[in-house]
């Protein structure tokens, strides 16, 4: 079992970062978590993003959720909003793709085109 002592340690450690997160000016990663998304595997995708953000100590990245985006057959769907850039929509997401997106798009600045909704539609 974890202990509340550890929560206290987290509080001490991250309190300074909290005001930074509250600004919400950084990158937003939004995961579709409606029935369609959950059934298609959105939960491990969401948790993979959260874990990467924690492990890499990315203070200006917010991971959040939204409802049904309206393309249920392409779930799990993730939208990435970087300040000053156009929204990028990733489809048929997996936990592994999430790690790649953190690395190449959010940190590296290069969206992974082959995972986006545009690429998927083009293939069909």
């Amino acid at each position: 079992m974890k202990t509340f002592k550890e929560l206290e340690e987290i509080r001490t450690r991250v309190l300074d970062e909290v005001s930074m997160r509250k600004d919400r000016t950084g990158t937003r990663v939004v995961v579709g978590m409606a029935t369609c998304g959950i059934a298609a595997g959105a939960r491990p995708v969401l948790l993979s993003f959260v874990e990467e953000v924690k492990n890499r100590d990315m203070k200006d990245v917010i991971v959040s959720q939204t409802g049904c985006i309206g393309m249920c057959s392409l779930e799990p769907i993730v939208e990435v909003y970087k300040p000053g850039e156009e929204k990028v929509t990733y489809v048929k997401m997996t936990a592994e793709k999430a790690k790649e997106i953190i690395e190449e798009h959010i940190l590296g600045g290069q969206p992974i085109t082959r995972y986006t909704v545009g690429a998927y539609e083009y293939e069909k």
């Binding site: 929560l7 450690r13 959260v50 991971v63």
Partner: peptide
């Protein structure tokens, strides 16, 4: 510290 802090979720 909000509950959605990655370390708290973990």
């Amino acid at each position: 510290v909000p509950l959605d802090t990655p370390a708290v979720v973990d």
